[in-house]
Amino acid sequence: MCRPHILLLALLILVLPSACSEEIIISSDSDYEDYLAVEALLTDRPDYPQRILLSKTIPYFEDMDRPMVKGASVMVDDVVFTEKEDGVYVAPTGFCCHTDHVYHLKIRLPDGREFTSENSMPEPGFELKDIDYAYLGGQEMDMDSTWTIGLWGTDRDFYSNYLVNYSVNGNLLPLFLSYVTIDHYFSGSVIKGFPFMFMMQSAINRQKFGDCFKFLETGDVITLNIYTIDDTFYRYLIALTMDALYIPLLSPQPANPLCNIEGDHVVGYFAICAHVDASVVVEDPLRDYFKKSLPFF
């Protein structure tokens, strides 16, 4: 976990217990207009479906599902993405991205509006060799239990940004609960057993977000995913994180994150990420140390 996250967490814990919250009805003086929302996250994983999601924005307080945009033409360079579900456009099997190439996204909507973007994949910043888990405790602060995932590998000797998440038995942590970090504080280091990710498992979260929040049991498989992302996408995700956390003492004035897609009335991002992962099988869920840190490993 990077330093700003610690700071945010500490101040959040200190400030919020003294405060109370209640729902309030507000209305903005500004008029709402429809925008096209583009979620185009491509990776270098050939085994993983490369998808681009198109939807429309909705007024903030409307209770409705996101309206998907059907019938669009979506291409990355000359590769055509096919609409498999409403608004979900998928690349042909085996398509994946590589470094040293600029990819061009082109979207054409049924009403004739066009949107374009270009981006390239950053060099992978981390060589992930292995991971391990350790039990940290629980039963406090509305959490059932917390584990940490330790990391073994080498951070390459240039500044990188990472998007990090995990899965339990293939159940992926929702992407919005992933975290983003920079490696300025450990760039170029050989890492052995650094606690890189925390798993805050709870029944409430399991109910809300699925089995990735289950209490760990023997035989469960934990997989850590690290995506190297470029600077602008890192800033985009940090903006989303800061906005979602919203701590008055620290949060900046609300603003829309910068969109890298050209066109009228469009939001979202076209990003390409370099992926690495590693897995570990849970043997003793309550083991409170990294077994792989022991001398005989």
């Binding site: 007024p59 903030y60 929702p174 989303l240």
Partner: peptide, 16 residues
């Protein structure tokens, strides 16, 4: 500054 709209990105609702 209040939000006027929202959209989904990476499974989360993002405010406009």
């Amino acid at each position: 500054t209040y939000p006027i709209g929202r959209y989904q990105f990476m499974d989360r609702w993002v405010r406009i």
